[in-house]
Every structure is written in structure tokens, then in C-alpha cells.
Amino acid sequence: MRIFKDAGHLFRLAGLFAAGTLLFLVIRSFIVPRSFGQYGHYRGAAIAEIAAHPIHFAGHQTCETCHSDIAQTKSGGKHAQVNCEACHGPQAKHADDPSIDPGKPDTAVLCVRCHAASAARPNDFPQVDAEQHAGGVPCQTCHQPHSPAIGAGGAK
């Protein structure tokens, strides 16, 4: 068969390509992550890795296991729906080890974040012009943050 003889170089080329493809497939079978395709076209193990990230906010349920007294005060007041860490910040470290100081929030910064009067805020949300309202007197002089309404059992 002369055609095979004269096309011999083409068969060599084809052989080279076939060998390359085969090598690729062999390497591929070794280095594709083992959990790839477990749930879909991704590395299944990634889900557990993401789920394993550490938490920083302990969650109010955790806070309330120790601070049930505060939870009690809060539950009757205007801030009943405001979670602990909304004001106190992330406390997972303190929850794991109570000897770690949780820090004391600064009411001068905190209160006005939500309650400074602004036309942009919903009308029914309590807001004050802090300067006019208190004239420099700290908020907690009159309002107890855990139950802020004056005369509602929480006032000082």
C-alpha cells in the first residue's frame, strides 16, 4: 500500500496527538480534586470548608444564657427587638471565654447612629436632634439603654 507509505508522516503526527491526548487524560484523572462533582460542577468539599469559618457574632441566644437579667429588662422595653451585639459588637470571643473583656459601648457614638434626626429616616422612627434634645448631657443620664423609655420602669 503506497498510500500508507507516502502518508506515513501524517500517521506519525496523528500518533503524536493521540499520545498527547492520552497523557492529558491520565494526568487529569490524577489531579482533579476528589470531591469535584459530588453535588454539581464544583468541589464538594468547599462547602464544608466555608461552613467551618469561625464566627465572630455569638448570637443573642448565647448572650442570654448568662445575661438573663438583661434579657429580662430588655424584653419589656422599646429595645426588646434589638439584639445584644447590635450595640455591643461581635462577642464570640467573650462568649467562649468570659474573662475576655467585652468592652463598654460608647453611648455618645451609639445612640445617634440610629436616633439622630434625619429627613431620610422613616417618620415613625424615634429621632432627636441630639444638641437640642440633650445639650451635651450623655444619653444614659436619662435613658437606660436596655429599656430606654422614661417612666417605663427603665428610667433612672
Binding site: A51, A52, H53, P54, G59, Q81, N83, A86, P90
Partner: peptide, 23 residues
Amino acid sequence: CTLCYHRITKGLTTACCEACPTG
């Protein structure tokens, strides 16, 4: 955003929801 995947898979809510004062 992972929707705080590491929290919601442990039965907690997300950090943003936890910290939102008005729900």
C-alpha cells in the same frame, strides 16, 4: 456575601441580621 454560610449552617442567623436593630 456567603449569607454567613458558616453561621446559618450552625443554626445562627447572619451577622447583618443579628446586628440589625430594627429587623
